[in-house]
Design a protein around this nucleic acid. Structure first.
Lengths: 343, 343
DNA sequence: TTGTAAGCGTTATCAT
DNA sequence: ATGATAACGCTTACAA
């Protein structure tokens, strides 16, 4: 005779015994109370409370072949951009039956693949991934995952399934066009980490300047290091060492822009007179900075919210009419690029 | 005759059939390859690859009564303080067999209770919770959870299980003592959200000023709103409207300190001459700001890392010698409080 | 409205 | 080293 392997935890059957009904009735009472008699329901509720019953999610998932898990893969948890996206995701998921499982890929394709496998072992109800540059393997995993998938942050051709984002190239081009219109002509690019989205912004920068006949590759300063405010300060130093005549900087993100502002102030370089500054993302601080900083507003929490909404619709069988959503961007012109008294 | 309910997914038995061994052998091969013959191992590995087998985590958890889940509850995903903690957590968990399940309580005790229940349904291997002010219910849940628990962010008496943090009261007191030593005497407190840790910092502020005979409650400006850089600017406005003679501000966090700096610059108030500014947490931007900003350095990612390390030790049966770890803090004196030329 | 039986995919136990 | 069998705790299918 075998030993039982019970965990010592209170199970459905324990509740059932205490309430003097069968296990399945307790199961029903918990999932859909209206199909159980008031009498039984009352006894069950009491038993649950008395025994401190907590359902076993693994058993639920195994028996029902469904989970409430939505998996999300993001490349960084400290980058403000992704914390805003994350907030949007949590806001949208709040109050639904779903729970988020977060994975941090640290901008590594290998990590992404590993996490994807881990997530798939949970048979998630849906998946959110960042960007459109998955590895071949990851892409295959996503395509064969039998759950809806949303790619966020960027739009592009050939979605795995659904997408919500915007064009980083267009956004960067618009920002640089704004700088040109404001009267700057030796416009530098300051970039860090150089992930795929940064690369596409750099492309947009080049396109805008080429079109205006102002392109000069010696104004491009990049580093593989990860972005920070102090790095922005250093990048401005590097730029000015090489090109002291630069008259504006398009920064790959707002942290770099703020670092640039501080460094310019330290060097007593008048902003926006001698140097125009434009950031990217329009974090909350940009409007409060002194002088206020021009940036490109992106809809970060919106991307998170929409991704979850699209996912839940799809999970419930109602695929969105348009699987690719472009949330756009807005150039927020502020003091840091107001060279001439115009406005 | 009943219908089978198979999910269409590849299972262990499928792999076993393809490799011409039994299911249990495949299970062993996957978990502990050294106990399986090389011959069988090779066939199994091939079958796994050919069929694209992905293990079912729910079934594993159910059968083994163990999970790799470490649950962490934090009050905010956008607050930089917690993203640093989160980074520490991810850094420490990386490369271990554990995976993180993150919960966002939004500073709500009710949310915390709900999330705790959700987490407990997964029978996590360990739990991390923020702060020491859990509700009665939450506390009971934690105490009866049969897994190790670490409270982070703060130290205090009466841990649920383990703790890693520091004394917010002491840290605030040290900061204010620094301001007093720097020659400021009408020192204000600017605080937002007023969560329990903020309250304790306010207490430390009061203690330091009372001891110096400088306490004046009209210098305390707080709001229940959540913290931001622009809010910092507004709080300085509120303070100066009421107390134009204030000569220093101790800000509850660095965002407020930076907002204060910007607002002061906008009003042409000389920093640190006419107004000293001290923040809290010492985010990376504080040293880059111009002028650089004094703050209290806290070990945020260290708290995350230590929490995970303590948890894993405990899970593996080696409880740390000291269950309560105080990581301390350091006052980082910078230009924004350097009133007199004193180094 | 309630119950019985079988099954979800894996691992623990015992046996060979 | 390998396997047969039961068990994990729950839900589906079917019946009453």
């Amino acid at each position: 005779m075998r030993k039982p392997r019970r965990s010592g935890k209170v199970t459905l059957s324990d509740v059932a015994a205490a309430a003097d009904v069968s296990a399945i009735t307790v199961s029903r009472a918990l999932r859909n109370p209206s199909v159980v008699s008031d009498d039984a329901l009352a006894r069950i509720e009491k038993a649950v409370a008395d025994l401190g019953y907590v359902p076993n999610l693994a058993a639920q998932a195994l028996a029902s072949k469904r989970t409430n898990v939505i998996g999300a893969l993001i490349p960084s948890v400290t980058n403000n951009v992704f914390s805003d996206v994350l907030r949007g995701i949590y806001d949208a998921i709040h109050g639904t039956r779903f729970q988020l499982q977060l994975g941090n890929t640290r901008y590594s394709a290998m990590e992404e693949e590993k996490l994807l496998l881990t997530f798939l072992s949970q048979r998630p109800a849906g998946l959110i991934v960042s960007g459109i540059d998955q590895s071949r393997t990851a892409r295959t995993l996503l395509e064969t995952a039998d759950c809806p998938v949303v790619q966020i942050m960027e739009t592009g051709p050939d979605p795995v399934d659904m997408m919500v984002g915007f064009s980083h190239l267009d956004a960067a081009r618009a920002a640089v066009e704004h700088l040109i219109a404001a009267g700057y002509s030796r416009i530098a690019f300051l970039g860090a980490r150089m992930d795929p989205r940064t690369q596409r912004r750099l492309q947009g920068y080049r396109q805008a300047l080429e079109q205006a006949g102002l392109h000069d590759e010696s104004l491009v300063v990049t580093t593989p290091q990860s972005s920070s405010i102090s790095l922005g300060a250093h990048l401005l130093g590097d730029l000015l060492a090489r090109r002291p005549d630069a008259d504006a900087v398009f920064c790959n993100n707002d942290d770099i822009a703020l670092g640039t502002l501080f460094e310019a102030q330290r060097r007593r370089i008048p902003i926006p007179g001698a140097l125009g500054i434009c950031g990217f993302n329009d974090l909350e601080m940009m409007q409060t900075a002194w002088p206020s900083l021009t940036s490109v507003r992106t809809h970060r929490s919106g991307m998170g919210q929409d991704a979850v909404a699209m996912l839940i619709s799809a999970i419930e069988g109602r695929r969105p009419d348009n699987p690719v959503v472009d949330l756009g961007f807005e150039v927020m012109a502020r003091e840091s690029t107001r060279r001439s008294p115009m406005a």
